[in-house]
Design a binder for these strands. Structure first.
Length: 425
RNA sequence: GGAGAGGUGGCAGAGCGGCUUAAUGCGCCAGAUUGCUAAUCUGGUGACCCCUUCGGGGGUCCGGGGGUUCAAAUCCCCCCUUCUCCGCCA
């Protein structure tokens, strides 16, 4: 959510932001409703003021005077009822519209329609050239008995995986490495609910708009399975006015993540790339409302992801996500794409977002500055490691000719010292 | 799942239809006093919206939403949530 005052003051800027993001939003209708609201507000306040005065006099008045006041009060009540009804009607139209206004993209966000137009910022590592015919992760996994798509499908439907044996151990190792790394860097760990109410999803900007991708329980419970720990993790600090001394807040959590992947039929159907359930370690930063600080945090959380990939010796690139590929809530987003030999290209493994006040405003997450003034916080988040996609990269990039897989040195301590997993095929 | 008790400002906690402009205490801020710190005394101390001649004025907010009333923190209904006991349970 952006500030209605900003829409009033700079409607053209807001419209330009919508256009850059390729998001349709009726700003003029919002301004029209807002004007109605601004017209009604002083009238209602004035009537209420009179009503309060009358009510106060009533308590001390003589019986005769009471009759008169009662008459006046009845009149006021009727006028108020009518105006309040108008106000409610106005708000009922305005509020849902305001929730659809996207956050304004940063200047540095490239123009563009979709991910084809994302701009590469940097590349790290060199994709390996194999002197044998490399297998993809599904071939390796099935041959080693680590993956069984058919069984996963029988148990849970398509787009599911079961990692078994040494692969499961590797998955745990990756998550553990990611968590430990972030704790070392000053992030506070949490274990959070993955089944949540609607409010945190509205608050973090997944509603409205993202509902199609989210599993929803039946109405006995009316809860949602989160697609990322970002949702509960960021919401921990909602509806509070924080002491500036406690900022920034840096959080890290592992969670299972659920995605319906509606509308992706036929796309990435093979293997671990696009699945309904995976494991992820996520980092969240909450700090003061300061563009420069936010940008510094953005680079910091991006660096955390890069450091993890470098530790795993996985080639990657960083892209600056273009306007059309940006979600409504983000000011800017850097995607990290890791080299996946089977795709003969880079596949998204991390997504570092900066939101400014957008989430905080919805979550009513504020802080008091040194002068005692209250402001909305800035929030950011990024993946540290998303298990299924990083497993693709690890298996495919570090495979040996005989079908075994080398374990990067930093992961070995979580693998009981194993340097290589699998059997010779 | 059953029974009961609660949810009031940063925190604790009173109020249970109009003397509430939400008492009081703690905390916090400022001033006074005092070698320093501490203590003591005095004063101040919220969020949000609208208007403003920038001095200020008006309104909303007592878990959330409805309702009753001239008037609701206070009465009624629904929901959320916390605690205690019982049941079930990793």
């Amino acid at each position: 959510m952006i500030d209605i005052k900003r829409i009033r003051a700079e409607p053209d800027l807001v419209k330009a932001g919508c256009a850059k993001k390729r998001i349709e939003c009726d700003i003029d209708r919002i301004l029209e409703l807002d004007a109605t609201f601004l017209g009604l507000s002083p009238k209602i306040d004035e009537l209420r003021s009179q009503q309060k005065l009358g009510s106060k006099e009533m308590s001390k008045a003589t019986p005769e005077r009471r009759v008169e006041i009662l008459e006046e009060q009845r009149g006021l009540k009727e006028q108020l009822r009518a105006l309040e009804a108008e106000m409610t009607a106005c708000q009922e139209q305005l509020q849902p519209l305001l929730l659809t206004v996207p956050n304004l993209p940063a200047e540095a966000v490239p123009e563009g329609v979709d991910d084809q137009d994302n701009v590469e910022l940097k590349k790290w590592g060199t994709p390996r050239s194999f002197d044998f015919a490399p297998r993809d992760h599904v071939e390796i996994g099935e041959a080693q008995g680590w993956l069984d798509a058919e069984t996963a499908g029988r148990i849970a439907g398509s787009r599911n995986y079961i990692s078994m044996g040494e692969l499961a151990r590797l998955e745990h190792a990756v998550l553990r490495f990611a968590l430990d790394m972030m704790i070392d860097r000053g992030f506070s760990p949490a274990i959070v609910p993955v089944l949540v109410r609607a409010e945190p999803l509205w608050g973090t900007g997944y509603f409205p708009g993202g509902g199609d991708q989210i599993y929803h329980t039946d109405d006995r419970d009316d809860l949602y399975l989160v697609g990322t720990a970002e949702v509960p993790l960021t919401s921990i600090h909602a509806e509070k006015i924080h002491d500036i001394k406690n900022l920034p807040i840096k959080l890290v959590a592992h969670s299972t993540c659920y995605r319906r992947e509606a509308g992706t039929y036929g796309k990435d159907t093979r293997g671990l790339y696009r699945v309904h359930q995976f494991q992820k370690v996520e980092q969240v930063v909450i700090d003061i409302s300061d563009e420069k600080r936010s940008l510094e945090h953005h680079h910091m959380i991006l660096q955390n992801a890069e450091d993890l990939l470098q530790a795993f010796d996985l080639p990657y690139r960083v892209v600056n996500v273009c306007g059309g590929d940006l979600g409504a809530p983000q000011v800017q987003k850097f995607d990290v794409e890791t080299w996946m030999p089977s795709r003969d290209g880079y596949g998204e493994t991390h997504s570092a977002s900066r939101f400014h006040e957008y989430q905080a405003r919805r979550l009513k997450m504020r802080y008091r500055d040194k002068e005692g003034k209250v402001h909305f916080c800035h929030t950011l988040n990024n993946t540290v490691a998303a298990s299924s996609r990083i497993l693709i990269a690890l298996l495919e990039n570090h495979q040996l000719e005989d079908g075994r897989v080398a374990i990067p040195e930093p992961l070995r301590k979580h693998m009981g010292g194993l340097e290589v997993i699998g059997k010779s095929l």
